[in-house]
Amino acid sequence: MIILYDYELSGNCYKVRLLLSMLNVSYEKKAIEFYPAAEHKTDAFLSINALGQLPVIQTGDLTINDSHAILVYLARQYDKSDTWFPISDPVRLAQVTQWMCFADSLTSSASSARLVNGFFYDLDGEACRQEAHRLFRIFDEHLWFNEREDHLWVVPGKTPTIADLACFAYVVLSEEGGISRMDYPAIRRWTDRVKRLAGFVVMPGVFPAGPGPVHVLPANDTFPSAGTAEA
């Protein structure tokens, strides 16, 4: 059984919960109170992850830190369709890696602004917001050009990748940091598509998509498909 060291309000933990749910992998949560207890900086937790960061997963003797490393592991280990982390395609693999790095820059901007507003971190919230808007503009254009080619996801191709989930968390939570998505229509359409993926789950601050179709990925037979009678 996978153990996820988790804080419900953490976007980085949310990325992992999303993929676990979408891949239909069962796991056990251990709550670590990030705020106000700062439990991730206690000796007990530092012995699990010396960096004092969430999330962490453990399975058997294996411990993996870092949300993106965990996404890579889960995709390789549990995704029968081999689409979430496309290792056989060098170009797409490079693009996935590039957008996961981009997602890290969202952590240091959009997520930091959220830490200032919601969790009283002593950072320059205005500078974080400015940087987030610069990144959102670039991201919105990228998604808009993808849509023109009928590519619905962050990395061009037929199926979403872990880069979608890596980028999704702090984009969809941006308003908590005072960053409106009003001016980014392609981003808003993309967040709606992610919300319609089979296995999508919400977290506090994230609402489900309105009524409409669930996007079942045809290649992945682990998904419970919406209309099967024999299920």
Binding site: E8, A31, E33, A37, E175, E176, P204, G205
Partner: peptide
């Protein structure tokens, strides 16, 4: 205590986007 705190923090965080809008 942690269960109680996480329960309440989740509830508050669900209200937050509603209030902020």
């Amino acid at each position: 205590d942690l269960d109680i705190r996480m329960f309440q923090q989740n509830i508050f965080s669900q209200d937050k986007p509603i209030l902020e809008n």
